[in-house]
Design a protein around this nucleic acid. Sequence first.
DNA 1: TGTTAGCACTCGACGGGAACGAGTGCTAAC
DNA 2: GTTAGCACTCGTTCCCGTCGAGTGCTAACA
Lengths: 343, 343
Amino acid sequence: MDLNDRKKKILQAIIDEYIGTAEPVGSRAISKKENLGLSSATIRNEMADLEEMGYLIQPHTSAGRIPSDEGYRFYVNSLMQDYKIGMDAVAQLQNMLESRVSLLDKLIRYAGAIASNLTEYTTVISAPKDDDSEIKKIDVVAVESHTVMLIIVTRRVRSASVNVNLSGEGCERLAQILNKSLAGIKPHEVTRDTIEKIKDGAKGFIKESALDKIFDCLYDTVTADAETEIYVTNADSILSYPEFADVKKARGMLSFLDDKEKLKKLASADTGEGINAKIGKENDFEILQDSSLVSMNYTLPSGGAGKLTVIGPKRMNYSKVFASLDLISNEIEKLVNYYMNGS
Amino acid sequence: MDLNDRKKKILQAIIDEYIGTAEPVGSRAISKKENLGLSSATIRNEMADLEEMGYLIQPHTSAGRIPSDEGYRFYVNSLMQDYKIGMDAVAQLQNMLESRVSLLDKLIRYAGAIASNLTEYTTVISAPKDDDSEIKKIDVVAVESHTVMLIIVTRRVRSASVNVNLSGEGCERLAQILNKSLAGIKPHEVTRDTIEKIKDGAKGFIKESALDKIFDCLYDTVTADAETEIYVTNADSILSYPEFADVKKARGMLSFLDDKEKLKKLASADTGEGINAKIGKENDFEILQDSSLVSMNYTLPSGGAGKLTVIGPKRMNYSKVFASLDLISNEIEKLVNYYMNGS
DNA sequence: TGTTAGCACTCGACGGGAACGAGTGCTAAC
DNA sequence: GTTAGCACTCGTTCCCGTCGAGTGCTAACA
């Protein structure tokens, strides 16, 4: 069933209004605000049609209408106006990026922070995994009389400290042995056996008790899940929406945002190419049924991939969020290119 | 002014009751629950006295009494019973510690998590600073064709990646130069000048454009504040207290807990030796005037020092919190000793 | 002199009902 | 096809009476 032009305009006006106020929208409000040249009565008729078609919902007889999930979906697919992000916001973003990201590592974190800044919603961003990057180098450094630090370099750096006594010389010999046997191997290919064999080779110059500690720690550190790191920014903002005026609801949402396991599932869910919205019931998690998520996958030239998600009430400002994510992905791509090509 | 024995018992009973219920406590409730062998009328008289002395407050004429800040203070100083932590909680704690902390690094984080587990309140823990630890070693590793990683080892490990092209050989030479000039120096003693000088020495074998990037990044990374890291655990728990039924209040508190700057101030405030409570108005921050904090400073044998703080409503279960912190500090000390002495 | 029973009083919580008003659907007229 | 008019619905707000928890005071008692 197709919507004629007028119905589209009315639906759009209703959703725009509702996004701003979170209050059911009445016919009179629409006929006044928009200059469609229609009386409230006419609009009432159209609204009744739109309700029958499933795009609107009436919470109770004498209230205005609110958009249904289908209404939002139609809005996102066909009605939404392009949102123009203010030049100062763009400048601010560029500033943030330039000043902070001499360290490409932190890019991801900042991207999340920036997105939540621009949109004023909660963001969840997953850092790129690097399961497949091999061990480049292992270093052993005596930090203090009693402490030795193990440093394992893949695409990222893991480190751990062990409380044993080992001379500088001992450290160097150990590092040599470790590099010889582990460099070039991928962390998840390292087994207990691998470690035990190396340990045998080191028995000559490290005393037994220290040996155990060091190699246990080594094993733990190497095989420690390259946990998909997940950063949540601006989680509190949900408390400012009337949708979460009920503390119980707010609490449910906040503890969802604290649950790394669930967030990982979120981050690994398929959301296709580009920027995509999941509205209300389209979300898999029970608790998100009253919210909307807008996600964007990103890929770094180095091969890592992750996802940036904005979480807000269903009546979120979709156009602003879409525009923000678009802007971020553009700016970051520019930046990454700059770093890769020298200009 | 001194309290006689009976007044003390009554005050204690009132506070114990109020800690559990968060409802004003009436005279009848006390005379029924405690077997003091006193009628409600007598207790009423005593309560009137206690109110006059400033230990109790009557929210309105016909309500029961609630403790004042001074009442809580007296309770904490003189009345509080020792809390016995269940054996299973102790066992659980020991398990957590043993299984997780083969890496002493993470001890702090877990300590915070454990404290909030035991007490069911929010905890804030500051990781030990290590401003004063000198640079032990610097490493330069080519990670990919376009990426070089700088690794700086002090008591902890900092790393950053730079997008330049540098051969393995180049990395080694660079590392040598860096170690020669920086090892043994404390990070905050490194100046732009120091870096520029080293840069000159490296001009021979690294092309100009790469050089700038690398040394900029090096400088940033070395001098990057040894930010006092602060971990907040279980922040949502505040939403479960009637004290925060009002979303606005809850939001204020949550955003306080998100504000690293303020938390740093908290962590650096003087709280004396051992375990200490700050009750209501005793706290410096406006927003904490309705809450209580219980803090414990800790020192690691390696010299680092930090603070563990439990945040809860004023009617928090002080005895449980005190006992939990005590337990944690004991268990961790045992563990640290174990790691330091080998047994 | 300290304790207690009794009683009048206070005040918040709860619930029902009236008034209000925002908004609708329907009908009839244009 | 559009709109003015009107009856109707229903949530919100406010008022008011009732209830009950709890108090302070007084007088009687041990």
